[in-house]
Nucleic acid binder design. Structure first.
Lengths: 349, 349
DNA sequence: CCACGACGGGAGAGCGCTCTCCCGTCCCGT
DNA sequence: ACGGGACGGGAGAGCGCTCTCCCGTCGTGG
């Protein structure tokens, strides 16, 4: 156990600044934190002393008494997976992650709060995470879960820890979250296909164990029922590009006359486009394709993908706001905020 | 300023556990941290008391005395950019980010160290970051910089803060880093094209203000010179897909006979492939394409991209190891570790 | 002219932990 | 049988900060 860092000299403390400024520790603290009124004259003296000594407040000491760490956990909860598997890469691939971080930072940074990155990929880790929070290492949690039936929301809720989810929880867990109006988003896609004159519309759905997958499929069914086609074809995919490719082939082999398809996410849509190209189907002439998410896959594919955009940055920013409010007052009611989606028209439909 | 969290009861402390176990605070600390020998009998009693009280050590208090936070900053340093610009999305897009995080975690997690995510997108933020470190909020820095002439490496180095870079610094800054043998990697690509019988080989280079861009172009020139073609054509791109697309068109308009091209990164290569497809050139029959990185773009493009793979996970893991060593002993010499690349043969060459 | 409140500043008690000292006990070797 | 060292445990200081409490000094109103 190292006692003290060799080579690194002792940093100036409040005490040092106080001595140098000829005031008490308390006064320096007041100036530094801007609490209460301090004589402008003294304020100046203290500020000079701070600058001169190069004082920077020690976070741990402050945390110890305020019980605030000014950092929150940014947790990605994913299914258990072998170490060498590219799953994790997939999780973070796509701009999704960046958009989340970007949105969070617009709110967190001005408040001086830092996100601590955590990957919850096993139940052991999930438990450890809850311990970490109880340890007061972090004030709260922003949780993005893509694990089927993730126990984490319930764990957090039970522990009474401030937390906000991206997307509604799988079960009836009392916890704050942000989400999009999934069905309305799907409507956008379906109505667009219909307005294009497509009459044989099908869907490539997401996995049934994800809320988004389920909601989007249900939305699709409802929307199609509204057009008198309650039995529109659907093939389930797994939200990956390869899955989309395979699903497209399956779909066409079962329903070769399909002329419009709603794909539950862009990555699968990209795969579907690849498959269509190889099968010699022209997009959008022979078959129109609409994706969901407006991820980077949408602009990486050819033709450019028409898709339903979710305002991820705004959602992330709202998550941060909800979380900070919850941290300020943990007795606060849980809340959920639902965002609207928009249709981004490109070439594929 | 909130005094104490309402609703949340006081957590058990060492003192509580000690009382409950009938031993001293020091003994409980020893058991919890596994330092020194403690009578197995007492150990058991203490452990039971810990479990019974639900004790979890308070991180801040521990940090205050050990001066270790057990968290490191994971900094992405990027050029300044307008708030609404998708730049950030681009930064984090692609699996690159995930591979870095994955690699880091394999080393950090077993040691109980957490990465704190930071985005350094302006000089103000960079300065703030250095302050944060001096504040002891984090023990060290893992820096991934894609900002041209980034001042951060120098700042960190001057401040004597433990830091490790991904990729060598732009200037002659004394700082630890991991990198790949860029030239050897480029050799792999060029030799492959040559072995395929290509005789009119060109390159789409990266920006000149990035070390990787420069190194790869220099490597290309050298390799081609080795084949008696010191003046092989090159067009500069900006590492984006659109840039690659444009560069490919430029290249073909200037050198229509090109039958092999080395592209300095996969994203540009993906763009190049798109352009070639639109221009009616068959890949690899008419023109062979080799990329660099083996990013997700390599498998998202058609035909699948032959590329030079950098072992990002291994590099990230090594960064973590270097950093932890540096944190343990800051007086340690700076070190750099260079990794080998491998050629991943797919369809495009 | 005095009482009173507002205000600016200081003193000091901890926050919860680690770690150095120190002390008692036991097991050696001589 | 005795001295010395190894070992296990306790006492207590102190990490650097915030915040409550208290006290002195004003300005103000009766």
């Amino acid at each position: 156990m190292t006692t003290s860092r060799p080579g690194r000299p002792r940093l100036p403390t409040l005490e040092d600044v106080a001595r140098s400024a000829g005031v008490s520790r308390a006064t320096v603290s007041r100036v530094v934190n801007g609490t209460r009124n301090v004589d402008p004259e003294i304020q100046k003296v203290v500020q000079e002393a701070v600058a001169q000594t190069g004082y920077v407040p020690n976070r741990a000491a402050r945390t110890l008494v305020t019980r605030r760490t000014d950092s929150v956990a940014l947790v990605f909860s994913v299914p258990e997976h072998p170490a060498d598997d590219p799953f994790m890469a997939r999780v973070f691939s796509d701009a999704f992650f960046g958009r989340i971080v970007g949105g969070l930072l617009t709110v967190l940074r001005p408040r001086g709060v830092h996100p601590v990155l955590m990957l919850a990929d096993s139940d052991a880790v999930r438990q450890e995470l809850v311990d970490n929070l109880r340890q007061q290492h972090m004030d709260g949690v922003v949780l993005v879960s893509i694990a089927p039936d993730d126990p984490l929301p319930a764990l957090l809720s039970e522990a009474g820890l401030p937390a906000v989810l991206f997307g509604r929880p799988t079960g009836p867990v009392p916890i704050s979250f942000v989400d999009i109006a999934q069905r309305t988003g799907v409507d956008l896609a379906v109505e667009h296909l219909v307005s294009l004159g497509r009459t044989a519309i099908a869907t490539i759905a997401g996995p049934h164990d994800s809320p988004a997958g389920r909601d989007r499929l249900a939305g699709f069914r409802d929307a199609m029922a509204g057009h008198g086609q309650a039995d529109a074809p659907s093939v389930a995919g797994d939200f990956t590009q390869e899955g989309g490719e395979a699903a497209m082939r399956t779909l066409l082999s079962q329903h070769p006359d399909t002329d419009g398809v709603f794909v539950a996410n862009d990555l699968m849509a990209q795969g579907a486009l690849l498959a269509l190209n190889e099968l010699g189907r022209r997009v959008p002439e022979d078959i129109a394709v609409v994706g969901f998410d407006d991820s980077s896959a949408a602009t990486a594919s050819r033709p450019l993908l028409t898709t339903v955009r979710q305002p991820v940055e705004d959602m992330a920013a709202e998550m941060a706001r909800l979380l900070l409010a919850l941290i300020d007052d943990p007795s606060q009611q849980i809340r959920s905020v639902i965002f609207k989606t928009t249709l981004v028209r490109r070439r594929s439909a």
